[in-house]
Design a protein around this nucleic acid. Structure first.
Length: 820
DNA sequence: CGTACTAGTCTTTTT
DNA sequence: GACTAGTACG
């Protein structure tokens, strides 16, 4: 009996086809990790391949760790020399050795999104870019997508001619790169981009790795972007033993540059590729699979396939609807408690999945209320916390003196009397002498405005302190360094003395960081290596939220649908299945059908996480960003045949609650909406009001008083002046009454089913024709290629200048005709 | 130079 | 509702 006997025919094919390019299309739960691990085992044991020559690439450290562990169990020896790693850590390892060949120092720093944003802020200031018009975020995401597609600043600039915004972005891109280079730093995208650049400019380095990686496997191939594809293509060019595994139906990272064409076109790039389809599912019951199949088949752009299982039909999908979001959360928590009590399942077998991180809050409250242990994956990353970033900035400063960002972050943290003025003076000196900020600190006496001054002395002291740490780094273990940093800077002491109410948490976080550093150091020691500071900082920079999640703790897991990819649970709850939440409002209003398809794939991912039971919940009413929204049941739920659900769907009537002119005209309100600045409807008005009061817990009090007794007095007695009274004067009483009795006697408008799921029932013919130039709020200008009348609406194909071809529904896309 | 308070923004998803 | 950048003041 061999280890391969338990595999099905298709899986065996995947394992035994070792030569040349192989594409494994693996449906959810079809055992792709099993195929990959057995394939590695087969290569080593039967094909005599040296483990050293195998490269397996995954997207998360967690996946990499699991793969190594499973190979270890199968092979028993040699698995430690297989290179199993994520794209990013693979590239960092390569760059640490060779990046000096392309103009960086080998001890480069890795910038996270926060750091990138700080750099971009400087860039905007320097280039005089008005960040009100063009946000840092926008620029950064344009740069990021350029990098995903391996477009250099110079190339970007060539496409920018004639477009004002693009020219600005182009200038920012160039400046941003030069700043990163000056700081000897790479952002996330650079890690891949620079490796490709290295391979292209140093054929000998590439060849070195081509010879090493004779067999390459890539997991989650559907989520690779252009740059990652190119990286793999280069590495595999010599031996061509490239096996990619993926599922086009689970491609959910397009927003991050993932190119679904990489998997759809694999056979075009490698015509000799063997293609293997895994469709038998070993995870879920047939009912769950039927639901998943029913949803995903509404996507047009996909390879046709359908999951099936040998197992029985199982329970029907549980569907529950609620009036309020907190009732939904209470139900989920209560249901999990029930399952635990009735011994149906333990906490660790349950997961709650949602579309946006913000949805976790209500769930957490309910879990705390019922005393159910839980873990939230994601949200605020541990390493993104202020105190952690501060300590890390010290370590970065010690490790790489060129990282100006890190130095400036901590030069006055904790407070040591160094202000903005001094910092600017040092920076000016550094700039005019072409040296780094930290270097300039060593030359304080040469800076006229600082030499001999009080401020100058403080700067010198800081410099001396850092140098002291550097000396310590040479002779002491990392653990001593970090405790020395915390001691010498009095960081924790300052926290203890501060009136920061989170001080205790922050100190605990710092202790946690020390623990992580110590265990990192020990691990290295066990492997017979000495841990370096750079390695630690790099590991820390590349951790994903999901990496730390283990099954050791008996806790319910709460996470976004994105984080859940690749995981499975006996009991899965999909919460917030509402139009506008999932699919998100952004997706619906963009009118782009391909974005809607990506959301649908996300729904498919969610459904297929469940092994035994799937519970879908819906809340009619929900607070989003302090605004109450009323949403219809998600179209994805309606795509599931009702026979698979244990409850019928609620009628699709949605309460129309906006206090706007349109509602007024329909006779919903007796008074016309007021206008105070932007506040022209109920939600906006409430928001407007809140912005004055939400801080000091006066909010509730203020609002209530205001609504009960809308007089000038009640406002001024709370210490508020001018604008509020303006609102009050113009605020109609109807609004105030609304607030008191939110659900009673409110008129409902029945929006027809067509209205929700099928676009507008009576769509007017668009004002533009084929060939016309049109403008889209998100995709910019483009040319209409085709207009097609559909049963529901007009399907418009537009060739956008910047985004290429998009097919969209006229009713949602709201295209504006431009003069020809 | 440091603090306290205000106003605006944000959120869709993340290696 | 949370976070943060900006600002006025001590």
């Amino acid at each position: 009996m061999s280890i391969y006997d338990t595999l099905n025919e298709q899986q065996k094919k995947g394992v035994f086809t070792t030569k040349g390019p192989v594409l494994i299309l693996a449906g959810a739960g079809s055992g792709k990790t099993r195929v990959l691990t057995h394939r590695i085992a087969y290569l080593i044991e039967s094909m005599g391949v040296n483990p050293w020559n195998i490269l397996a690439i995954t997207f998360t450290n967690k996946a990499a760790g699991e793969m190594r562990e499973r190979v270890d169990k199968l092979v028993g020896y040699g698995s430690e020399s297989i290179w199993v790693a994520t794209f990013h850590s693979t590239c960092v390892r390569i760059l640490r050795r060779y990046i000096d060949k392309i103009g960086y120092g080998n001890s480069f720093t890795i910038y996270d999104a926060d750091d990138s944003k700080s750099v971009m802020k400087d860039v905007c200031k320097k280039l005089d870019i008005d960040t009100k018009m063009l946000k840092e975020r926008t620029i950064l995401s344009a740069i990021s997508s350029a990098k995903d597609n391996l477009i250099t600043p110079a190339e970007y600039d060539r496409t920018a001619a004639g477009d004002y915004t693009k020219r600005k972005i182009s200038a920012a891109y160039t400046e941003y790169q030069s700043l990163l280079n000056k700081n000897n730093a790479l952002d996330f995208d650079d890690i891949i981009v620079k490796t490709v650049e290295l391979f292209k400019s140093c054929p000998d380095v590439l060849e070195n790795y081509q010879n090493r990686f004779q067999y390459i496997m890539v997991d989650e191939y559907q989520d690779t972007n252009m740059a990652q594809f190119e990286l793999i293509r280069l590495l595999a060019a010599k031996n061509k033993n490239l096996c990619v595994v993926g599922d086009d139906d689970q491609s959910i990272y397009k927003f991050r540059g993932a190119n679904i064409r990489n998997i759809l076109d694999f056979e075009i790039v490698y015509p000799e590729a063997a293609v293997i389809k895994l469709e038998q599912n070993y995870r879920s019951t047939q009912n769950i699979l039927d639901a998943a199949n029913a949803v995903i088949k509404n996507n047009a752009a996909r390879k046709d396939k359908a999951l099936w299982t040998d197992e029985g039909a199982g329970n029907r999908i549980h569907f529950r609807s609620f009036d309020e979001a907190h009732e939904e959360a209470d139900y989920i928590a209560g249901d999990i408690r029930r399952k635990k009590r009735e011994l149906v399942s333990d906490y660790r077998e349950c997961a709650v999945l949602y579309r946006t991180n913000a949805q976790s809050r209500l769930l957490e409250e309910s879990f705390i209320g019922l005393n159910i242990p839980y873990n939230v994956v994601g949200g605020v990353n541990f390493y993104a916390r202020k105190e952690i970033k501060d300590i890390l900035a010290y370590l970065k400063t010690i490790d790489n003196g060129k990282d100006d960002l890190a130095v400036k972050r901590i030069i006055n943290v904790p407070r040591r009397g160094i202000g903005a003025a001094s910092i600017d003076r040092v920076q000016a000196y550094a700039d005019s002498n072409g040296i780094s900020f930290f270097e300039a600190l060593s030359q304080i006496d040469s800076i006229p405005s600082l030499a001999g001054s009080k401020s100058g002395q403080k700067l010198k002291d800081f410099n001396t302190m850092i140098r002291g740490f550097r000396t310590r780094l040479e002779f002491c273990p990392l653990e001593e360094l970090i405790t020395d940093v915390i001691e010498t800077t009095s960081y924790v002491k300052a926290l203890e003395e501060s009136d920061d109410e989170d001080a205790k948490d922050r100190i605990e976080n710092i202790d946690e960081l020390i623990t992580k550093l110590v265990s990192f150091e020990q691990e290295k020691e066990e492997q017979g290596e000495k841990a370096t500071l750079s390695e630690f900082l790099e590991e820390v920079a590349l951790v994903a939220d999901i990496d730390g999640v283990g099954s050791d703790d008996n806790k319910v897991l709460l996470m976004t649908l994105h984080s859940a990819k690749g995981l499975e649970f006996s009991q899965v709850y999909l919460a917030g299945l509402e139009e506008g939440i999932f699919p998100s409002y952004m997706t619906i209003s963009s009118g782009d059908l391909s974005e809607l398809e990506e959301e649908r794939r996300l729904a498919y991912v969610g459904i297929t996480r469940a092994k035994d039971d799937l519970t879908i919940t819906y809340a009619k009413k929900r607070m989003i960003r302090g605004e109450t929204q009323y949403n219809a049941v998600s179209r994805f739920v309606r795509e599931i045949p009702e026979s698979l659900l244990d409850n019928s769907l609620p009628s699709n009537n949605v309460r129309e609650d906006s206090y706007d002119d349109a509602s007024y005209e329909r006779g919903l309100f007796k008074t016309k909406p007021f206008n105070a600045g932007d506040a022209n409807n109920w939600s906006a008005a409430e928001n407007y009001l809140n912005s004055y009061s939400n801080r000091n817990a006066k909010r509730e009090k203020l609002s209530d008083t205001v609504f009960d007794n809308p007089s000038q007095e009640s406002v001024s007695s709370l210490g508020r002046k001018k604008d509020i009274s303006e609102i009050l004067v113009s605020r109609p009483k109807a609004v105030a009454r609304k607030k008191e009795t939110p659900s009673a006697n409110k008129p409902y408008i029945a929006k027809s089913l067509e209205g929700i799921t099928k676009g507008m029932p009576t769509a007017a013919a668009p004002e533009y024709q084929t060939g016309d130039r049109v403008r889209h709020i998100k995709f910019g200008d483009g040319t209409v290629l085709n207009i097609e009348k559909d049963t529901r609406d007009y399907k418009i194909t537009v060739d956008f200048d910047e985004y290429g071809n998009k097919i969209m529904y006229a009713a949602f896309a709201k295209l504006k005709k431009l003069p020809n």
